[in-house]
Amino acid sequence: MASYFLIIAGAVLVNNFVLTRFLGICPFLGVSKKLDTALGMCGAVIFVMTSASAVTWGVQRFLLAPEGVFGKDLRYLQIIAFILIIASFVQLVDIAMKRFSPNLHGALGIFLPLITTNCAVMGVAVLNVQLEYNFIKAVVFGFAAALGFAVALVIFTGLREKIDRANPPKAFQGVAIALVTAGLLSLAFMGFASLVK
């Protein structure tokens, strides 16, 4: 039990995917303008990352690993296989969201299909393999990483609403000031360093 807690705390606070590993910056900047949209994105990412973790773990274990059904070392296919799975999940979310929440679908726009190329999703799948997590740990790690993304995104959206009303010099307006803020937020998150070993 404690190890799961450590995985969660580690992925959310200490090695936050966005603020410490710098993965998934694209949607982090893209959909942080309004809280409602950001929450929708969080939901989508949590779903995709958790389920992608589960499925990629299975694929890795039963198809690609030498001890899989083919009995051959197919691990060189890892990236292409994972991309296929992630893309399918994103497509599924896209279709479902268009059906059930067209407003949110419109608000997320291009960033929804872009979850496919969200390196955080790929990152979590690859990390699961690297860290040699078992199935449950992989799913928990996937979920926690997505939760970390969600926490960072929600915090940043709050800040974004404040800095959008700020008055930066012309050269810093827009994404520049958002990146400065993200940097400062990342600085604050360094306080959690070595909280979990």
Partner: peptide
Amino acid sequence: KQVFGGIGYNPF
């Protein structure tokens, strides 16, 4: 501070 526009605008 000043990158954000000075007093009142800084988030940190």
